[in-house]
Amino acid sequence: MTKLILMHKAGSIYDDEPDVVYDFPRSYLAAAREAVGDWTVYYEPVKAGPRGYFAVARIAQVIPKPGAEGRYLALIEPGSFLQFDRPVPRLVNGRPLEAALTGADSSPRKGGALQLAVRRLPDADFARIVDLGLPQELEQMEEARYGAPAGGMADAATVFERPVLERLTRRPYRDIAFRRQVRAAYDYRCALSGLRLRNGGGRPEVQAAHIRPVESRGSDSPRNGLALSGTLHWMFDRGLISVAEDCETILVSHNKVPGDVVARLLSASGKLLAPLDPRDAPHPANLAWHRENVFGQVLAEGPAPWD
């Protein structure tokens, strides 16, 4: 198996959805087939934006693209995509992070491999990039951010020595990375009420909700997340509220949710709050899944929070 760099830019001619599929021409087929079962790093080219390296995912399968001669699709393993906590710059201290892009004098090479949309990535380069984007101490960083209880950080300390690949598959680590991405995407405001609430210690009350649960083949992409208050997260998971096909109108199961509760909890506009970066907006396919599989269909367990 082989690790890869996959170049991606929003609005390209290719049908890429980084957490679902990567579209590429025949010239990269051999490298893509070598990478089946292994990890890739997504890279944003200079002309597309400032992010540099921005996410990881694992390739599950490579297939011909239906109806497109000479094009192929790398199908991403469900649940493997994870956006970096912080984008990794193309150069660190003036030096590339990829050996293939580094000249004999450690300066950046021009042309050649730099122009390849799909390029092989040595394990050492992969580990270096991931460590910068998803640091080992991420759990400790999150705990310390708002003044964690003394015992919490000590309990988590043993996690930080785990190898890169084990860290990428650990659910607790992925949950923290997802939560940090989603809450920041909405500036710590609830996407359904528009409110930004913090407790006495300054910790944001807003939570990160998966639109399509991981156990139902949902991803940890911010495009599969909403920042929600605790009560609205409960209502969303139980199908009492959803988002319409226009991706902004809030739907309410009015036969189950009292009108005064709607007036108190939801934005007066009846619209979903947009994230700071349009690239983090909920994917229409994820919202459609929620409408079709959860909205109006999941029975609430136990008393409602407003009872």
Results as ranks from 00 to 15, higher is better:
Met1Tyr: 12
His8Ser: 09
Lys9His: 14
Ala10Asp: 13
Ser12Met: 11
Glu17Thr: 13
Glu17Asp: 12
Val20Ile: 15
Tyr22Pro: 00
Tyr22Gln: 00
Phe24Ala: 03
Phe24Thr: 01
Tyr28Gly: 00
Leu29Ser: 09
Leu29Ile: 09
Ala30Arg: 11
Ala31His: 05
Ala35Thr: 01
Gly37Val: 08
Gly37Asp: 06
Tyr42Glu: 12
Glu44Met: 10
Lys47Arg: 13
Ala48Gln: 08
Pro50Leu: 05
Arg51Pro: 04
Tyr53Phe: 15
Val56Glu: 00
Arg58His: 07
Ile59Val: 15
Val62Trp: 06
Ile63Met: 15
Lys65Ala: 13
Lys65Pro: 05
Ala68Cys: 15
Ala74Phe: 03
Pro78Cys: 08
Phe81His: 02
Phe81Tyr: 11
Leu82Met: 13
Asp85Pro: 10
Arg86Asn: 03
Leu91Tyr: 07
Asp105Pro: 07
Ser107Cys: 14
Pro108Asn: 07
Lys110Tyr: 08
Gly111Ala: 10
Gln115Leu: 15
Gln115Arg: 15
Gln115Cys: 15
Gln115Phe: 14
Ala117Cys: 10
Arg119Tyr: 14
Ala124Arg: 15
Phe126Cys: 09
Ala127Thr: 15
Ile129Ala: 03
Val130Gln: 03
Gly133Val: 10
Pro135Gly: 09
Glu137Gln: 14
Glu139Leu: 12
Gln140Asp: 09
Glu143Leu: 13
Tyr146Val: 11
Gly147Lys: 03
Ala148Gly: 07
Met153Asp: 07
Ala154Ile: 07
Thr158Phe: 14
Glu166Asn: 13
Arg167Ser: 04
Leu168Val: 13
Arg170Phe: 13
Pro172Asp: 06
Asp175Ser: 14
Ile176Lys: 04
Ala184Pro: 01
Ala185Glu: 02
Tyr186Gly: 00
Tyr186Ser: 00
Tyr186Phe: 10
Tyr188Gly: 01
Arg189Glu: 01
Leu195Arg: 02
Arg196Trp: 05
Leu197Thr: 01
Asn199Trp: 02
Gly201Pro: 04
Gly202Val: 11
Gly202Tyr: 07
Glu205Trp: 06
Gln207Met: 06
Ala208Ile: 02
Ala208Asn: 02
Ala208Gly: 06
His210Phe: 05
Arg212Ile: 08
Val214Asp: 03
Val214His: 08
Asp220Pro: 09
Arg223Met: 10
Leu226Ile: 11
Leu226His: 03
Ala227Arg: 01
Ala227Tyr: 00
His233Ile: 05
Phe236Tyr: 06
Gly239Ser: 04
Leu240Thr: 01
Leu251Glu: 02
Ser253Asp: 10
Gly259Asp: 11
Leu265Lys: 02
Leu266Ser: 02
Ser267Leu: 09
Ser267Cys: 11
Ala268Asn: 08
Ser269Glu: 11
Ser269Ala: 12
Leu273Phe: 06
Ala274Leu: 13
Pro278Asp: 14
Arg279Gly: 12
Arg279Ala: 14
Asp280Asn: 13
Ala281Asn: 07
Ala281Phe: 07
Pro284Met: 11
Ala288Lys: 12
Glu292Cys: 13
Val298Asp: 00
Leu299Pro: 04
Ala300Arg: 03
Ala300Trp: 02
Gly302Met: 07
Gly302Arg: 06
Gly302Thr: 11
Pro305Asp: 00
